[in-house]
Simulated scan of single mutants.
Amino acid sequence: MPPLPYVLDNTLGAAFVGMTVAAVLHGVSCVQAWYYFTHQSDRWPIKSLVAAVMFFDTVHQALITHTVYSYTITNWGNPIILDELIWSLLVEVLFNGLTALLVQSFLTMRVWRLSSRNYLLTGLTALLVIAEFACVIAFTGLSLGLKTFSRLANLEALSITVNALAAAGDVLIAATLCTILHRSRTGFHRSDTMINKLILFSVNTGFLTSLCAVGSLITIVVAGHTFLYIAFFFCIGRLYTNSLLATLNARKMIRGSADGIHSTSDNLSFSLRDLPKNGTVTSSKRPTNISIKIDTTKEFAMDRDSDQELDNDKTMHCTVGQLCYVLLWSSFVVAN
Rank of each mutant, 00 (worst) to 15 (best):
H26V: 13
R286M: 15
V320P: 08
R151A: 14
P79V: 05
R185E: 05
A223E: 11
A246M: 11
L63W: 03
Y240H: 15
N336E: 06
Y229S: 13
V7P: 04
C318H: 08
V221M: 13
N196M: 07
Y71F: 14
I73S: 05
E132Y: 10
F201C: 11
I261E: 09
Q32S: 11
T226Q: 04
V171K: 00
L208T: 05
T74C: 04
T11W: 01
N196I: 04
I292D: 06
K252A: 10
S70K: 03
T288K: 07
F55E: 06
T280H: 07
A33S: 14
S283I: 11
T319K: 11
R43K: 12
G18A: 01
A335F: 06
L114W: 02
Y69S: 07
A250S: 14
V171S: 06
Y229I: 03
Q40M: 14
G206L: 05
G123D: 09
N78C: 10
P5L: 03
S271P: 06
L208N: 03
Y36Q: 08
S191R: 00
C324M: 10
I220P: 04
F233Y: 13
S265D: 11
M19K: 04
V111H: 04
V53F: 03
A231Y: 00
I46Y: 03
L128D: 00
S115C: 06
T264C: 09
L310A: 08
A33V: 11
S70R: 05
H189I: 15
P45S: 02
Y6D: 12
Y36M: 09
P287F: 02
A223N: 08
W87E: 15
A134I: 12
G27A: 08
S269C: 12
V24L: 15
S306R: 11
F234R: 02
M194S: 01
Q61F: 09
I195V: 13
I137A: 10
V221T: 10
L248F: 01
N242F: 03
M253C: 08
R183G: 13
L177S: 01
R255Y: 07
N312L: 15
A138W: 03
T288D: 14
F332S: 13
I294S: 03
P45W: 00
R273D: 11
T122W: 09
A22R: 01
S41L: 12
G169Q: 08
R43W: 02
V214T: 07
A213G: 02
I73T: 10
W76M: 15
S283M: 13
L244G: 05
L245I: 04
S143D: 12
S116Q: 10
A22G: 02
G13M: 04
Y71C: 10
L208R: 00
I64N: 02
T125M: 11
V93M: 07
I160L: 12
G256W: 03
L272E: 01
I180G: 02
I64A: 01
T122N: 08
T108E: 00
T11R: 03
G77L: 10
W87M: 15
